[in-house]
């Protein structure tokens, strides 16, 4: 340990350079992860914020929510078998305010449960993002059905397919869209629920059915993991180059009796010290950014995600450094001694 620390303090520039690179890469990773997560929340917080559970839709809908129609008898059976279950319908549409300003929304109606807002007939609960232009008590018009709604309140970030959610009553939904059947059933719980004529989806699988969700997340997550791999490679390359420079020194140390495992521990300690300081700094800055990020910027970086990514960074860095350390194992003391000055 002492050796590792001594080398770091004596060669500050070298280690600060590596630390800065790791800091930049990890900071970028945290920020992109925050954006990926933010976009995912922006895209589908209506679904994401639900507890784990099973979504059921009609088999003939071919995994498209808008085509799904659940047979009322099957719905009744599922709702009676699972008291926590809820019927749910989602339709994209527009609401127009007094100033003739049109707003795209996702109309959501449910059979009633604690998971969704349940407004009275003629009322609507809107996502908080609409609070800038609308206010409680304001009249809103759904032109296609010629129905008027009164804004009864706002709900904390609730979106679907990048649109703010507008919760309406089941009666209003049936009138607006002339549909008596629900599109979906949601059964909370870890157990996978099956029902005749219905297709089951876990929460994660259902999210992938939302248009653009999986494509958007896939590309952003690819960038995140690509950066994680790059940081591992950076560690591997940096320690490889350092080890090449120190190959004679390792030989001499082995010659005087230093254990190979001690040399590996020295390298691991240096890797951990650089990574921990860099990660702590980038985690702190990215968490700080969540506090000052503009409200309309889709950015969400939970502490758990930061910790998970940090652990992955450490693991990848450890593997990278260890792979580069194979040279330490190979070095022969005699060869180093015969090669002259360190």
């Amino acid at each position: 340990m002492k050796l590792a620390w001594k080398e770091m303090t004596r060669n500050k520039t070298k280690f600060v350079i590596l630390g800065s690179i790791i800091f930049l890469v990890s900071f970028l990773t945290f920020m992109i992860s925050g954006l990926a997560n933010g976009l995912s929340q922006d895209n589908a917080s209506l679904i994401k914020d639900l507890p784990d559970g099973t979504f059921l839709m009609s088999e003939d809908a071919e995994e498209t929510v808008t085509y799904s129609r659940i047979d009322p008898q099957i719905q009744e059976k599922v709702l009676s078998d699972y008291p926590e279950a809820v019927g749910l319908s989602i339709q994209m549409g527009f609401l127009k305010d007094n100033e003739e300003k049109q707003q795209s929304v996702a109309f959501v109606a449910s059979t009633g449960a604690s998971y969704f807002e349940e407004p009275a007939q003629g009322e609507v609960f809107l996502d908080e993002s609409l609070a800038e232009d609308q206010s409680v008590g304001e009249e809103l018009l759904h032109e296609q059905s010629d129905m008027n709604f009164t804004a009864a309140g706002f709900v904390k970030q609730t979106t679907y397919s990048h649109s703010p959610v507008a919760f309406i009553s089941l009666e209003d939904y049936e009138k607006m869209f002339r549909a008596e059947e629900m599109q979906l059933l949601f059964v909370p719980g870890e157990e996978t629920v099956q029902a005749a004529g219905l297709q089951s989806f876990s929460k994660a699988n259902f999210l992938d059915l939302i248009p653009s969700y999986s494509a958007e997340q896939l590309s952003l997550n690819m960038i995140v993991w690509f950066l994680v791999v790059i940081s591992g490679l950076l560690f591997a390359i940096f320690f490889y180059m350092m080890n090449v420079q120190k190959i004679k020194l390792y030989g001499i140390l082995k010659g005087i009796g230093v254990k190979t495992s001690t040399l590996f521990r020295m390298m691991w300690m240096q890797m951990m010290a650089i990574a921990l300081v860099s990660l702590a700094l980038s985690a702190l800055l990215s968490q700080g950014f969540t506090m000052i990020a503009p409200a309309n910027l889709p950015f969400s970086l939970p502490v758990e995600t930061t910790l998970l990514l940090s652990v992955v960074f450490l693991a990848v860095g450890f593997v990278g450094a260890t792979l580069s350390g194979i040279q330490i194992k190979k070095v022969e003391p005699l060869q180093a001694i015969q090669q002259g000055e360190v």
Binding site: K6, E7, K248, G257, I337
Partner: peptide, 19 residues
């Protein structure tokens, strides 16, 4: 044995540069 019972001096001093 090398660590505890032997000592080495070579043509080059082979000192650890950061100690």
């Amino acid at each position: 044995i090398r660590a505890s019972a032997f000592g080495f001096v070579f043509q080059s001093a082979h000192l650890v540069p950061f100690l």
